[in-house]
């Protein structure tokens, strides 16, 4: 069993005033691809390092399957980890890097050579086996570190921003490959990132974390569509969810009881020719290539509206905004989702 269960896990670093990880309850299923998503400084890496055992918890329990692993050293947790800066051994060849975990745990066998070569070909680095990490590109280095992580057949695979040091095109390529790897290995993946595209495209489920607190854990589409906190709405999506005080929008929209903030995604708003729910004037236009974003001033709020890239609007023009009531999301004063 390689599920992971966190029960009220906390971490406070020495001399820190607040918890880096604050009472996190989280269940990660066997063979799941879970992405921990959050802005920088949110405690997502600390959370991963607690799961890895690289940091000691200051509260709560970590279970692998049914086994409490708080006091199990990272060496014995049967997990692998990939780091943002690759963390390859610069003094060893690619071959030795990949073979390291097997040799280090004294399981050196005749199969080692075959195994290293099989993994290298799986990651398309067979031609690099004799090189030193310093001679490789970032993408190649990260492939090597993936190889080093999978050779010992871990139960759980941890990744700490593995693509953040790579440039955009490589990132897209490796994203697909990591997803493929997850399928082939059939083990639990826990992946930390601040990049929502990575999270959306790879995750079975996303765990959103902010200020050390776990806000929501769910499938990407659920988190995107029904964020349980207004902050999530404003964090996810490009551009993010429009959030407005219901009083600013007039009485054309009836807010639910207890809700004071109304959220709606820019792509759920259409510009209509007839008089509709809201009227406003275009104050600026951002051209994004595949679409355009209109910034429309409605009352005291500015709403972002996503329109097709061939639409013709001009700054200053008055527009009518329409949307279906289903696409509205309501939040209370403190940001909580109101059903």
């Amino acid at each position: 069993m390689s599920s992971v269960t966190l029960k009220k896990v906390s971490k406070r670093f020495t001399n820190a005033e607040t918890d880096a990880v604050d009472q996190v309850d989280l269940e990660i299923n066997n063979k799941e691809f879970l992405v921990i998503l959050g802005p920088s400084g949110s405690g997502k890496s600390s959370l991963l390092r607690l799961i890895a055992g690289l940091e000691e918890t200051t509260g709560g329990e970590v279970y692998f399957g049914n086994e409490l692993v708080n006091d199990v050293s990272p060496r014995e947790r049967n997990i692998s980890m990939v780091f943002q800066n690759f963390a390859l051994f610069p003094n060893m060849s690619v071959y030795d890097n990949i073979a390291f975990p097997i040799r280090a745990s004294g399981q050196d066998s005749e199969n080692l050579d075959d195994e290293v070569k099989r993994i290298a070909s799986m990651l398309q680095i067979e031609s690099l086996l004799d090189r030193k990490p310093g001679e490789l590109s970032g993408g190649e280095q990260q492939r090597v570190s993936l190889g080093r992580a999978i050779i010992k057949k871990p139960k759980i695979f941890l990744m700490d921003e593995p693509l953040s040091n790579l440039d955009a095109s490589l990132r897209a390529e490796l994203r697909a490959e990591i997803k493929k790897l997850h399928k082939e290995l059939g083990i639990t993946f826990i992946y930390v990132t601040h990049d929502q595209t990575e999270a959306m495209s790879m995750a079975d489920r996303i765990a959103l974390i902010k200020d050390g607190k776990l806000l929501q854990v769910d499938k990407p589409e659920v988190i995107y569509n029904t964020p349980n906190h207004s902050w999530i709405g404003s964090f996810l999506g490009m551009p993010a969810m429009n959030l407005a005080n219901s009083s600013d929008l007039g009485d054309s929209i009836s807010a639910k009881k207890g809700a004071s903030v109304i959220g709606i995604r820019p792509e759920n708003i259409t510009v209509s020719s007839e008089k509709s729910k809201l009227t406003g004037s275009v104050i600026s236009i951002e051209y994004l290539g595949d679409s355009q974003i209109l910034n429309v001033k409605v009352g005291k709020s500015v709403m972002k509206v996503k329109v097709p890239n061939d639409s013709k609007y001009s700054v200053g023009a008055d527009v009518n905004l329409d949307f279906s009531d289903d696409s509205l999301r309501f939040f209370s004063d403190d940001g909580k989702y109101v059903k």
């Binding site: 890895a52 690289l54 060496r75 997990i79 390291f100 975990p101 280090a104 080093r148």
Partner: peptide, 9 residues
């Protein structure tokens, strides 16, 4: 850390 995780003493 990578070395620790690899199980090396």
């Amino acid at each position: 850390e990578a070395a620790f995780m690899s199980g090396a003493s």
